[in-house]
């Protein structure tokens, strides 16, 4: 029998894989939150609702229009991203000059409204979404469903592409500069309000993309995002607000820590991330990758 410290190896790897998958979602969601916070100064509490909207968009397109998963992977983020742009233009842009608290309250209220509407129309029990890649591989020590492997790889690619876009391209340089000093960037002739709208649209589209990827793993339900978003906020705080690579590494890392805890001491698995958050806040208040200003 294969085991380490009397933990059976298949159970360990099974939980680590689960942790990696959860981590993939933490990373994708915290990335969008970090970018939005940096640029808009808004703690976007609708992020979980946007994730849910992404999953719902994919599910509705599949059941009503027979649009397959792969098309939804592009269409759903576009639709939700446009919805985000409308929200930014109509609501968020009016509160940038106010305290963070107003942005928090506005987006929190919006999330409640959106989730409430979906709960009212579709209930909260959730609907299944068929796995787009059936089957799996026997890795010897464990069974790996093919779709879950795909999700981990896709999330990594999405995260690294986002990192590259922000840290290595001209548009990313505008974004970083406007995060630091929007007034001066605007005085150089860059349309900063439009850049802000675009950033919100992209951040929200990223959440929707994560939602589409999650649909075949989780049930598609109105509250699927609100459960996740609390953990994701903890991830952002641990990683350090505004750090892109920090969000990615922390997201995956905390998913793994959570998975490990499930093996070692299951009752603590729901709280371990918040324990880590408390410790990090005591030792390094700006977060693991954050720079104190």
């Amino acid at each position: 029998m294969l085991d380490i410290f009397s933990i059976p190896l298949p159970a360990l790897f099974g939980q680590l894989l689960l942790g990696l998958i959860n981590g993939a979602f933490y990373a994708m969601l915290s990335l969008g939150l970090a970018v939005i916070f940096g640029m808009l100064n808004v703690i976007n509490f609708t992020h979980g609702a946007m994730y849910m909207l992404g999953a719902f968009a994919a599910w509705l397109m599949l059941t009503n229009l027979s649009i397959p998963f792969w098309a939804s992977l592009v269409l759903a983020p576009l639709i939700v991203g446009l919805f985000g742009i409308v929200i930014e233009r109509l609501l968020l842009k009016r509160i940038y000059h106010l305290d963070h608290l107003y942005g928090f309250l506005l987006t929190f209220g919006l999330a409640l409204v959106i989730e409430g509407l979906f709960q009212w129309r579709w209930g909260s029990s959730g609907a299944p979404y068929p796995a787009p890649i059936p089957g799996g591989y026997n890795l010897g020590f464990m069974f790996m469903p093919a779709y879950r492997g795909f999700v981990v790889v896709a999330a990594l690619v999405i995260c690294l592409a986002t990192w590259y876009g922000i840290e290595r391209t001209r548009l990313g340089a505008y974004l970083r500069a406007a995060t630091e000093n929007p007034t001066l960037v605007r005085a150089f002739g860059i349309n900063v309000p439009r850049l802000i709208t675009l950033t919100y649209g992209l951040g929200v589209a990223l959440a929707a993309l994560a939602g589409v990827l999650a649909a075949p793993i989780q049930q598609v339900s109105a509250l699927m995002g609100s459960n996740l978003v609390l953990v994701v906020f903890a991830v952002v705080v641990i990683g350090g607000m505004g750090s892109i690579m920090g969000s990615i590494v922390t997201g995956f890392g905390l998913g793994l820590i959570e998975g490990l805890t499930k093996v070692v001491y299951p009752p603590a698995s729901n709280t371990v991330i918040f324990v880590v958050m408390a410790i990090v806040l005591m030792v390094k208040p700006a977060g693991l990758f954050g720079q104190s200003k």
Binding site: T183, R186, A187, F188, G189, N191
Partner: peptide, 8 residues
């Protein structure tokens, strides 16, 4: 005018 249009 806004500063970005002035810059331009």
């Amino acid at each position: 005018r806004s500063s970005d249009t002035i810059a331009r």
